[in-house]
Amino acid sequence: MKLPYFPGCTLYTRARGLDHSTRAALAALGIELEELPNWTCCGTAFPLAQDSYIGMVAAARILDSAAQHNGRLVTVCSFCYHVLKRVNHSIKNNAEARRKLNDYLEQGYGGETVPVHPLEILKHDVGFEALRARARGRLKGLKVACYYGCLLVRPAAEMAFDDPENPTIMEEFAAALGVEPVHFPYKTACCGSYQVLNAYDVVASRGREILAAAAAHGAQVLITSCPLCQFNLDWLQGRGEGTVLPALPVLYFTQLLGTALELPAEGLGFESHYVDPRPLLLG
């Protein structure tokens, strides 16, 4: 199966590991991602001011360009997924948004594209049972904290991804890989996000709480689908500001998937992590 794919800017730079592991793991499962020929930044922030449409134009154009391919558009970064899904929701349900945004688009677009996250593909297209059969026993017994953060699940009505307070799709995914998901109370807490540039204390204190909660529940690694969550939680520990010992490797869920499928580790982008997960995963 071939599906159009929107990587997002950060997946070309700091989050190459997320891009490479997503492509490799899905390819191993028979899903080929075809990158859109031309794309821009999605905007990263869904505009929350009702009278501001300009911040939606980039995402609208991306959705529009994908509409020519077929129904679905795969994107894995939590920010991109959040923005594409909410802008699409606005175009579908808000006549003013649809009219104003179409003034900036080359074709007419009415919300036909369906943004999908690889976790949804794994659950509904591949199937967790089939995934269980494919995953080797390599990571058996590894205790994994599934960290959703904020943008993947909220707001529930527009994201329609999973329960906003107690999502379970990532735990189901982890269990299918043969690892042991640990439940911890901070899985939908925010890491402080873009405040890393403005109020670093928020990221430092929140990050320590999230990591400490995961470790207290026995986690050996933490998985996420967000490049900014990954960075904030990983960098904090890289700077020696984490309080969890040993340091908790912060992985993309697709890196865990690639490892469970025994794909070559060189293609999964582990080298850019501050806390090197390789001794634990591959040791």
Binding site: C9, T10, L11, Y12, T13, N38, W39, T40, C41
Partner: peptide
């Protein structure tokens, strides 16, 4: 020129 598109490439370090 496709200015927005070359800026998009710049923004992802290409």
């Amino acid at each position: 020129l496709q200015v927005m598109d070359y800026m998009a490439a710049a923004q992802r370090g290409d």
